[in-house]
Computed example of a mutant assay.
Amino acid sequence: MITNTQSGTNVQEIAEGIYRINTPVQLPGGGFNFNQYLIVDDKPLLFHTGPRRMFPLVREAIAAILPPERLAYIGFSHVEADECGALNDLLAAAPDAVPVCSQVAAMVSVNDLADRAPHALGDGETLDLGHHRLRWFDTPHLPHGWEAGLMFDDSTRTLLAGDLFTQGGSGKAALVESDILGPSEAFRRAMDYYAHAPNTGAMLERLAQESPITLACMHGSAWRGNGAALLRALAGSLGQRQDKAA
């Protein structure tokens, strides 16, 4: 469903009750895209806010699914413009919503940046939306940011994967089952945004052990398939880079 014909912003369900909001953009060097994920439930959650200037488009897209003021939670992986740039705009639009982030993010940034106190989740803590139960995974420096974390929906086995598997282009296909590791690794090698921390492989293995079926990527198409195998393949690719650097 196209929600804004001028920008091309669109919404599509990628798992039960989980909708990808996608906006293609033109940046120096080529096309790119920004995704947010709206989970429709008793307590709706939006994961990623998009940049501040994209707020009108995101609000319009949310309104195509549910009234924005119904939002209960606004979550994000780490503090960065595309993750939480429109946070305060969304908090103003949804008077009962609270930010959701890691305990480290709350301590170092969000307690100061947000207009409303955050709900800071500890590693492994669960957020109950009604039908969907989201678990928080601390992933410091994966792919970057001391405060980074990801969320996993137990009911649909969907990993809200943040910057993992970033793909360039418009992200026109909302959900694919084809290879995204190749395109995402090509994108990363051209402008590497990973911290390459010593425990990156262990964190990816921990996520793989949850056996996700759907990966909700912030940039590019969402993906469906054997998520454990894909996460382990990413760990192998990153490990090869570290071996070469050593």
Rank of each mutant, 00 (worst) to 15 (best):
H119R: 15
D138E: 12
G122D: 13
G162Q: 10
V110F: 00
R135D: 10
L113P: 00
P118M: 07
D115H: 01
A148V: 03
V110Q: 02
T126S: 11
L134I: 05
E125S: 06
A148D: 13
R116W: 03
H144S: 12
Q167I: 09
L113T: 00
D112H: 02
R135K: 13
D112T: 02
R116C: 02
D154A: 15
F152N: 15
L142H: 09
G130Y: 06
A148K: 08
A114T: 00
M107C: 04
L150A: 15
S109I: 00
D153L: 11
W146L: 12
P118T: 04
R133W: 03
F137C: 05
V110P: 03
A120C: 05
R133N: 13
L142E: 12
N111V: 01
L150Y: 15
L159I: 07
D154P: 06
L121H: 08
L142C: 12
F165H: 11
A106E: 01
W136I: 02
R135C: 12
F165M: 10
R157V: 04
A148E: 14
P140K: 07
L134C: 06
E147N: 08
G130F: 09
L127K: 07
T166N: 11
H144E: 14
R133Y: 05
F165T: 15
D115K: 04
L160T: 14
G162A: 09
M107N: 06
M107I: 00
D115W: 00
P140I: 05
Q167F: 04
R116P: 00
W136A: 03
D112S: 00
G130K: 06
E147P: 02
G124I: 06
T126W: 07
L113H: 02
D128L: 04
R116N: 01
H131S: 10
L142W: 03
N111T: 03
S109W: 03
G122F: 04
E125W: 04
M151D: 08
T139H: 07
T139F: 05
